[in-house]
């Protein structure tokens, strides 16, 4: 067993520098690496490019980095929940690349699986296709999209073991698996870290080979963005 554990979030974030590109898992506030985001805020890391489906809300998730103007560029599919984001984007303080959600996921998946580029019909004939190579397959037009390049992938899983194997829960899985192994270094934070041998290998979602560092997060707020319930 190759042990991937690090003691805490500080050790897990060793080597991060201003100007780097980070991938961050999560959909809305669901399945985001909360402890790592807090550490990025604490270290006041500057001019970073963040690849993340969303940008958090004003006072949680990536919104915390936005508020401190740490983000130079965001690459996302949907940013509607964050007023500060919209302000920084429209004023030109922050650069934004909007990417169709499936293309975003596939550009991560391509990066981690060694595929430099791929063709997708998503965005053909729209401004997303501007400047991109197009090609017809089976009578349908496609655009070429490239794999992302990132320095770090920051992901969050439900359970993990010392070997870096990961299991996700519910829809908190989302972008996390596709980002594992997509950045040069993948750091996973988990709610529960167990010794090797305790996870059933049949149930592992992401094998430890895609993960370089793993730690158990100190605490999880797991904020709900839109609480919708029905009466009993």
């Amino acid at each position: 067993m190759i042990n991937k554990t690090v003691a805490n979030v500080r050790e897990a974030c060793e080597g991060i520098e201003d100007g780097m590109t980070f991938m961050l898992g999560g959909f809305g506030l669901c399945g985001i690496p909360e402890n790592i985001i807090n550490e990025l805020v604490r270290r006041n890391i500057q001019n970073v490019t963040c690849i993340s489906n969303n940008a958090g809300v004003d006072d949680f998730g990536l919104g915390l980095l936005l508020k401190k103007h740490q983000i130079k560029k965001m690459i996302s599919s949907y940013v509607g929940e964050n007023a500060e984001f919209e302000r920084q984007m429209l004023s030109g303080e922050m650069e934004v690349e909007l990417v169709p959600q499936g293309t975003l996921a596939q550009r991560c998946e391509a990066a981690r699986t060694g595929i430099p580029a791929f063709y997708t019909p998503a965005g053909y004939g729209t401004e997303v296709a501007e400047g991109k190579e197009t090609r017809e397959f089976g009578g349908k037009m496609h655009i070429m999209e490239k794999a992302f390049e990132a320095d770090f992938s920051f992901v969050k899983a439900w359970k993990g073991d010392e070997a870096g194997n990961l299991i996700f829960k519910g829809t908190a899985r989302n972008f996390n698996p596709a980002m594992c192994g997509a950045g040069k270094i993948t750091v996973a934070e988990v709610e529960e870290l167990v010794p090797a041998g305790e996870l059933d290998p049949n149930q592992v979602h992401i094998p430890g080979i895609f993960v370089q560092r793993i730690f158990q997060g100190e605490k999880y707020e797991k904020r709900i963005e839109q609480l919708t319930v029905r009466k009993k």
């Binding site: 959909f27 669901c30 399945g31 829809t171 797991k222 319930v229 029905r230 009993k232």
Partner: peptide, 19 residues
């Protein structure tokens, strides 16, 4: 459907971020 009051799970949402 939406969960009953008190049974919501932050790890279980739809694309509109609703529980």
């Amino acid at each position: 459907p939406f969960p009953f009051e008190g049974e919501e799970d932050p790890d279980l949402i739809n694309a509109g971020k609703q529980t």
